[in-house]
Design a protein around this nucleic acid. Sequence first.
DNA 1: CCGTATCCCCGGGGATACTG
DNA 2: CAGTATCCCCGGGGATACGG
Lengths: 132, 132
Amino acid sequence: MSCQPLRTEEHKKEIMAVQDSMDVLNGKWKISIISSICYYNKRRFSDILNDVTGISNKMLSKELKELEINKLIKRTVLDTQPITVQYELTQHGKSLQTIINNLKDWGIKHRKEIIGNTSEPIEENALAENTI
Amino acid sequence: MSCQPLRTEEHKKEIMAVQDSMDVLNGKWKISIISSICYYNKRRFSDILNDVTGISNKMLSKELKELEINKLIKRTVLDTQPITVQYELTQHGKSLQTIINNLKDWGIKHRKEIIGNTSEPIEENALAENTI
DNA sequence: CCGTATCCCCGGGGATACTG
DNA sequence: CAGTATCCCCGGGGATACGG
């Protein structure tokens, strides 16, 4: 986001755009799900259920639906017996790789920043549950 | 995130790093708050309260605290009468600019992708409330 | 196998009032 | 001005069971 003075209208639009991205990626599971599909290229429902530790079928179903609405993944029903469903990233979904990579890099940097400098407690925050 | 096969351990760490970033930025207000401070360079509590339309003092207080814990902003109490408090971005906070910019760009791209291609309804999702 | 339906609980977060 | 305290509601999301 530009921090130079500019018309407030424009500024608000920028914030909206950032929020749009955040909304798409938000939720405890989205990143992990995308990651799972991305990692294996094509992946079935029950597989993802196993990949993403802790997620319930209800949540997985919901998150997948949202990802599909946002055109990040493509759902294909295979007429096996019983039917299986395959998920894969769309081109649009793949375009997320860059941004996810950026988030990853900053996340690593952040972790160093927080843990490195002081031994201050981190609260129940971001790093609290993940540290080490 | 790398989608080439690699050890699962490594893969999980990458996802954690992405989640760390997401956690820091998460919450309806964080981006707007950062943006407000960034835009004006230094900003007082009540000013931010006005900048970010819809936020309550309780939420602002809470979010600012989290941002401070994560070392993205610096809090300074000025001994005016009555006291005022000034917030500004730290160096670490400023390092977010790049990533926020990336999120902004992808957000714009995403909006085009969703609205552009079809006239499909977008549900209660991301764009639903912000569109136009 | 791939989900949907139902129940239920807990905490995020708004409104309002109060303090240093 | 810069927060805290309190009350209260609503929905996110877990557990479990069921349907195509």
